[in-house]
């Protein structure tokens, strides 16, 4: 067995990740580690593979080759179908994900959106799950919306509920896939605030984003991806103010000169 308490085991370890759709190589041999509590932003032009890399971490888009490890457990283990499904369903409980389009369940009210998975997968009683939903909603500042259906919420509120839903599973890491890209500009801030709060609580986060200001102010590390490779990475002040690579400079010129 692998000793998960060993400190030299990286929290998240991506080894030689590669993925292609037919002839198109979306990810080309990416290796990357993330420490517990670290907040990593992935930036880059569309089609650079940043979302694919994020979605490989929880097996939504399985890699063609390479390995993904979380706390000494290989997520993309090669297993017979049934065992693989069981394994993946188990590890996904530890990996929260927030999507661009929220993906709240429209036929369930906010409470049921949050309590569904803890009740089904962790065997929480209705009372315990409801209490959990109240806590998580208070956390994102939406306590009064507990009985409301998603269709009655604004985009920013929907995304905050989606974050609360993911947090209710007590994940070890949170993945954000362009969480604010579908929002009206005036609603972006409320979601950013919730994410900042999570950062202060030392949640490990990997954030695919187009918002350079947010990446600069919240993240410990920034990865710039282009054409399936990590072109450059470093602390935000280095990447944003002093990038070495020409491609990074070009990209940032377009995105910072607004």
């Amino acid at each position: 067995m692998i000793d998960t308490t060993k400190s030299d085991t990286p929290f998240i370890d991506i080894r030689h990740a590669a993925k292609s759709f037919g002839a198109l190589e979306v990810l080309k041999d990416i290796s990357l580690t993330v420490e517990r509590g670290q907040i990593v932003a992935i930036i880059g032009p569309s089609g650079s593979g940043k979302s694919t890399l994020l979605r490989a971490i929880n097996e939504l888009d399985p890699l063609s080759s390479g390995e993904v490890w979380l706390e000494g457990v290989q997520i993309n283990k090669k297993l017979p179908y049934r065992q693989y499904e069981k394994h993946v369903n188990q590890v996904r409980q530890d990996i929260g994900m927030v999507f661009q389009h929220f993906n709240l369940f429209p036929h369930l009210n906010v409470r049921d959106n949050i309590t569904l998975a803890p009740k089904m997968l962790k065997g929480l009683s209705t009372a315990a799950a409801n209490k959990l939903a109240e806590e998580q909603l208070a956390h994102v500042g939406l306590s009064e919306k507990i009985d409301v259906f998603p269709s009655r919420l604004s985009g920013g509120q929907k995304q905050r509920v989606a974050i609360a839903r993911a947090l209710a599973m007590k994940p070890k890491v949170m993945l954000f896939d362009e969480a604010t890209s579908a929002l009206d500009p005036e609603l972006v801030e409320e979601v950013n605030l919730v994410m900042k709060q999570l950062a202060e609580e030392h949640m490990t986060m990997i954030i695919v984003t187009h918002e350079m200001d947010f990446a600069a102010s919240v993240c410990d590390r920034v990865l710039f991806m282009d054409q399936g490779v990590v072109v450059e990475e470093g602390p935000p002040e280095v990447i944003f103010q002093n990038p070495k690579e020409e491609r990074t400079k070009n990209f940032l010129r377009k995105h910072l000169s607004r």
């Binding site: 499904e85 409980q93 999507f99 993906n103 369940f105 036929h107 998975a117 089904m120 997968l121 599973m169």
Partner: peptide, 26 residues
């Protein structure tokens, strides 16, 4: 919407659970 399926699966629901609780009710 495919996002419904992904939303449920990332929480850890199995294919069958996702169908029963998320896809079929909608």
């Amino acid at each position: 919407d495919k996002g419904q399926y992904e939303g449920a699966r990332t929480l850890g629901l199995s294919r069958g659970q996702t169908l029963r609780r998320i896809v079929i009710p909608q």
